[in-house]
Structures are given as C-alpha cells and as structure tokens.
Amino acid sequence: MAADGKMTPTEYISHHLQNAQIGEGFWTVNVDSLGMAIVLGSFFVWLFAYVGRKATTGVPGKLQCFIEMVVEFVDTSVKETFHAKSKLIAPLALTIFVWIFLMNLMKLIPVDFFPLFWGLLGITVASGMGKGEVSEGAGVIARAMDHPWSYMKAAPTTDLNVTLGLALGVFVLIIFYSVKHKGLGGFVKELTFTPFNHWALIPFNLVLELVTLIAKPISLSLRLFGNLYAGELIFILIAMIGLFQLPLHFAWAVFHILVIILQAFIFMMLTIVYLSMASEKH
C-alpha cells in the first residue's frame, strides 16, 4: 500500500475480502465471521425466547405476531416435508432460517461502513496495532483502513468457514438420523447395496453413495457461500466506480433482498429434505 494511503483497486478488493483473523495456520479464527455469527445468533435466540416467554394465547402484539408468522411458516414447511416424528427438526429449521437470514441481512450494510467503523475504532483505542504502511500524515480514513481491525466484515455468510460449519452440522445430523431410523446395518447396506443390489458391485456402489452423501453438505455450503460471496464482490466492484455507484448500489441491494431471503429459505428447506430422506425407510 502506498504511503499516502491511496489504495489500488486490487488492494481495495483484497482488503474488503480479507477477514479479520487471529492465530496461525489451521488454528486461525476469523474473528469477524465468528463474532458476527455469534452476535446475530444470540440476537435471534434472545429475541425469540423473549417473545416466547411473554407470548400470550390471546390477542398477540405486533412483534409476537411477526415472530409467530415466522415460526408458523417454518413449522408448515417442516410438516409438509418431514413426516417422521422429531422434536429437533422444527427448532433446527427455525434456527437455520432466521440465523442465516440475519447473517445474510448484514450484507445490506454498505461495504465500507463496517471496516471503516472498526478501523476508526482501532486507531482510536489501539493505534499501536497499525501496520505502519501509511504515514502519520495521511488522512484519517487512510489510516483507519490501514488498521488491522478494518478487516472486520459484516456478513458472516460470505465466509466459507461459516457456511461449511453450518453444512457440516447438518451433515452430522443426516448421518445421525440415517443410523437412528435405519439402524447402523441399514445405513451401511444403503451405502453398499444401492443402486445395484449385487455383492460384486459393492465398491462401485460405495463410491457412488459416498459421493451422493458428501455432495449434500458441500453443495449446501457452496451454494450459500457462492451466492453471498459473489454478491459481496459485486457490491465491492460497484463501490469503486465513483458517484454512479449510488443508483447501482440501490438496484443491487434491492435485488439482494430477494437473494438474502431465498438463500436462507433454500438452506432451511434442503436441510429438511435431506433429513427427511435420511429418516425414511426404503
């Protein structure tokens, strides 16, 4: 980065795509993704638990109405797709839907606001941490963007770790439900004797079924990540074109409202579908 704080487009893009990290190697933690995910998840459980605790069976207030609308929407989706009895599946779907929705929603915060806020906070309370690539004489904004805290990103779902974490959680549940409903033997048999019911084709079946199985969490996580990451990239690109970015930002943000809800819904729906497939006997 140049000493006067001017970023080249490449630097700008890579700066905005970089997560704020702590640690080395595999044990690195993306502070921004994990922090925002936990904050938003906590907000979700707090809000819903708060409303649930105060819920009346009489005439509900507006907030309760809204929360109940979401709950009922999720409940209907679950009941339509998942036919086995389970106390876990509906709360799981609700958590996935609302949590992912909130994490996606953070994308509507303009791309510069969040890094700038953290960068300014950084040079105010922890000015010693600056990388020192920008001279003291440069502007406040340039110094703020040079601060490591300015790597904070608002939308956790643009981080592959987050989406993969969610998908792996679902993957564990898929295996758990498969074993629970079909038995360990049934699950192994499903992996080895379908689609071709012959002992000589066991290796072939195994490869086929394992790919099918593993494709589920991979596709689940990559779909969400890809949509959100690409959207984020476009936001960043739009942010670089000067004054014309305003109408473009608006248009892309409006379009993204759809993506935000749709991706959260797809993730939830596919989770339900995968789990219902896992718990169905053939």
């Binding site: 998840g41 979700f44 819903f48 819920a55 009922e72 409940d75 709360p91």
Partner: peptide
C-alpha cells in the same frame, strides 16, 4: 443455538400458537 432454540424458543411459541 439449536439446543437453546429447542429448549427455550420453540416450545413456548409453538404452545402459544
């Protein structure tokens, strides 16, 4: 979050509904 939701969020809301 899922466990919390299962214990403290879903039952009261669903009961109310």
């Amino acid at each position: 979050f899922v466990l919390f939701c299962m214990k403290f969020v879903w039952p009261p809301l669903n009961n109310a509904i």
